[in-house]
């Protein structure tokens, strides 16, 4: 293997690890949130330091590759894309941690009707499916699969759009649940942001893989 390929391989492995780690964090944040599992919430918060440290490692690998090898063509697109994907993944990790924080603050299970009305489970599942798609497409080097997640992001956006009305109606009918409702509102918002970051990841991956710029194009 030529020296730059060794560096590219290191970045590739680390990003793959980051995707799996963040996917697991988000998946646990769903379980923790849906079941008010505080033990799991603590684990998520604890694991966040691993996400942060892996982000720094990937940054370091990318900087090293740029400094020492002046990558061009596919290598250049790879390094530039991975730097951005890394930062999107780290943000998704942050959201998983924030949701775990909410679980600890709420301190009890939310009303099932409230969660169902807002389509909370569906929102979590869609966000996790987006990360599963990323993991699969990345590991198999398949940009077509990556494109599948754009449709999921649209559903996430729709649920997010409807949430305020649904939650407002619920609060009017059940004023004592105002705190729960605010936390749920924020959680849905976080998941919508997860979708945006996942979409960025797909766009950046496609830039690397197909040399196409999809960003800001309708």
């Amino acid at each position: 293997m030529n020296p730059i390929e060794v560096e590219i391989e290191k970045i590739n492995d680390a990003v793959l690890e980051m995707i799996e780690l963040v996917k697991a964090q988000l998946s646990r944040s769903r379980d923790s949130f849906m079941n008010s599992d505080e033990e799991l919430a603590h684990q998520i918060i604890h694991t966040e330091t691993r996400v942060n440290s892996l982000e720094l490692t990937i940054d370091k690998y990318c900087e090293n590759t740029i400094a020492r090898f002046s990558p061009v063509a596919t290598d250049l697109r790879f390094v530039v894309s991975m730097l951005k994907i890394n930062s999107d993944l780290e943000r998704i990790g942050d959201y998983a941690e924030s949701i775990a924080d909410y679980v600890l603050n709420i301190n009890h299970k939310l009303e099932k009707t409230l969660m169902d009305n807002v389509r909370t489970d569906e929102m979590f599942n869609l966000a996790i499916e987006m990360l599963e798609l990323i993991a699969d497409a990345y590991a198999t080097d398949n940009s077509k699969k990556m494109k599948k997640l754009f449709a999921k992001d649209k559903v996430l956006n729709q649920i997010n759009k409807e949430k305020s009305q649904v939650i407002a109606e619920y609060v009017l009918a059940n004023p004592s649940t105002i705190h729960d409702c605010l936390y749920l509102h924020s959680t849905i918002k976080k998941l919508e942001r997860v979708g945006d970051h996942a979409k960025n990841i797909a766009e950046n991956y496609i830039f690397y893989s197909d040399a196409k710029v999809l960003k800001h194009k309708k």
């Binding site: 030529n2 390929e5 990558p71 061009v72 063509a73 596919t74 250049l76 697109r77 040399a211």
Partner: peptide, 17 residues
Amino acid sequence: IFLNPKKEKTENYISGR
């Protein structure tokens, strides 16, 4: 050429492969 060469030979040459 340096971001997105169309030919594999170009890519291999400029990336030192």
